[in-house]
Write a protein that binds this DNA or RNA. Structure first.
Lengths: 348, 348
DNA sequence: CTGAAAGCGCTTACAG
DNA sequence: CTGAAAGCGCTTACAG
């Protein structure tokens, strides 16, 4: 190591000069830092990883980017992880596909942990990660076995809240546009929605599959809106699809929203907040979810936490103008400028 | 190395079994692979990096994610880099900030290259990367010194094309909403736009700054639209701002687009294509730009390319309905279903 | 506080 | 085709 020579000290001293909290005198540290600057030296994080067997790298797998919810989540996650001195190794393009071959690649890089955004993994793989001691956190998904940590909102309750709201709005004909059928979020949202409707005696809910995509949702909407019994309320498994449905309803069917059709989404992401859409939707609080995921990941890396935890972040129905607002609901709303953002707490 | 013992071979043999193209007999390779599977062995990419001094990691720095152009670009870049066996170390949150302290962090991880999306870097830093032999590619930005490779569209020409189109549409009062003033793209788009207008005797173009943000553009729009001389054409330095302007114009000022106001953007990204906006805009072809950036990066890593190259990808004006279409323009348009997507080539 | 030495898990000439 | 040996750039007990 040239820097050691230049500064006239040992390699150990150089190492300690760059390790916060290591025992070096101010004198030698100064000398070393000066030599390092002169030589353009920077510690090699790769070599450090090899010896410490800690890479300070977390792999983040993102399903896809079209839905603004994911870039937002990734951005929040990134700033939190970086703040703790962790780097992100990014993988993308795995929407509810088993990402096993990918995960094998990831493990070669000796990552300290893996965060999966809307991506599933096989139980064999989660077992392997467990045996290797590599923590895994699922965001916006759960596994059937609950054997890896997860961060979600209360999707079942969310589905119920949407049903409540639409029922109170005196809608008559309900439809659901599904995401990918094997995703836990889709399953839970649908189950909550349908259960509440059924409990009110409504069994006949039409359904179409949009697979969380723009075009898929557009097709689904076309199909539902040409039904002999056209729905007057459509609940979409995410915002991205809900926006697509609004586009189709307005521009292809000439419908007025919410007069002719109410549309409700899930996420409160991106364009849902824009005036052109002003979507009524179940929020998924990005900051809280990212923060919970980062925190779980870090405490698992530090072995402060060794069993899987399942965090359900509280969320609320954000009432805007894409769905008819029940009369009695109005009276509960405040008259502040924040009016449009009024929340209906999920905890009630 | 346990696998070597298990398979009864040397460490070298194991290494060769996992190196494509290395000289091992089928027999020993089989034996090794079997032993590896039994032990759950995977080569350690970190150790490999250390000895080969190639990490097969490319750092990607993304300015921000609100503008759908960036997630799209990142996704394309990711799939191309992964296809070539490279991993991505992600950094985000650096919109036209000097990212120097960050870059110092990046270099500790011995990345094989750095791709910057809409992020600037100091000339000292680019010099340092050059001396270290770490290739840098700028996407959607150029540097004043042209000392690092870049991939952009022809922003100056784009600005001119927009001016042409708006002039042909017989607009009278023009405005420009700027991005961050120090970004090369903003500078070039504005310069092209203004030059063409000036050449037609129009010197009085009002201007406001949106800094590429939603709220910034909304404020800029409010200011411009309350001017005593309200513009009938606004050119925005990107789509994200243009969408915000449309929201403000329609919902706060009750304007009809394009009857009362024409809005033109830049990127052809995300919601610009949705029917609710149907934005006329200069495209920036994401796939082509990502592909060019990946290609330059790879050939620089392989030292096939050692001087900076500046790729300008061809792009076109995408004519939709957010800006008044000149009469004579109509006659040139095809009657196909692709009509709405008709391009006006930049090369003419 | 400081240094010499061992070792992290690989790859790669060099011999055979 | 195969193995023994050296070495990549660090960290970390262990002595002093």
């Amino acid at each position: 190591m040239e820097v050691a020579l230049e500064a006239g000290v040992s390699q150990s001293a150089v190492s300690r000069a760059f390790t916060p909290g290591a025992s070096v005198s101010e004198d030698t540290r100064k000398k070393i830092l000066k030599a390092a600057k002169a030589l353009g030296y920077r510690p090699n994080a790769i070599a450090r990883s090899l010896i410490t067997s800690k890479s300070r790298i977390v792999a983040v797998v993102v399903a896809y980017f079209n839905n603004q919810f994911y870039p937002d989540l990734l951005g929040e996650l990134s700033s939190r992880l970086h703040a703790q001195g962790y780097q992100i190794l990014l993988f993308t393009g795995f929407l509810d596909k088993d990402s096993d071959d990918l995960l094998s690649q990831i493990l070669q890089y000796q990552v300290d942990g893996i965060i999966l955004l809307s991506t599933s993994l096989s139980s064999e793989f989660s077992a392997e990660c467990a045996s290797l001691g590599v923590p895994v956190v699922l965001v916006n998904r759960t596994t059937a076995q609950d054997d890896v940590s997860s961060v979600t909102s209360d999707n079942f309750r969310g589905g119920e809240l949407v049903a409540n709201f639409l029922l109170a709005g005196k809608h008559k004909t309900f439809a659901y546009i599904a995401g990918t059928p094997n995703s836990s979020t889709n399953r839970d949202r649908e189950a909550g929605f349908l259960r509440r409707l059924r409990s009110q005696g409504i069994k006949d809910v039409s359904k179409a599959r949009g697979n969380y995509t723009w075009e898929g949702a557009a097709q689904a909407a076309r199909q539902l809106l040409t039904n002999r019994k056209r729905p007057d309320a459509i609940f979409c498994a995410n915002d991205h699809m809900a926006l697509s449905v609004m586009d189709v309803a307005r521009f292809e069917f000439g419908l007025k929203i919410p007069r002719d059709l109410s549309v409700v989404g899930y996420d409160d992401a991106g364009a849902a907040r824009w005036r052109s859409f002003d979507l009524t939707t179940m929020e998924q609080p990005v900051k809280e979810m990212a923060s919970a995921a980062a925190q779980i990941m870090l405490s698992q890396i530090k072995r402060e936490l060794t069993t899987p935890v399942h965090t359900i972040v509280p969320s609320a129905l954000i009432i805007r103008s894409s769905a008819r607002v029940p009369d009695n609901w109005e009276s509960r709303r405040e008259k502040s400028p924040e009016d449009r953002r009024r929340r209906e707490p999920a905890q009630n």
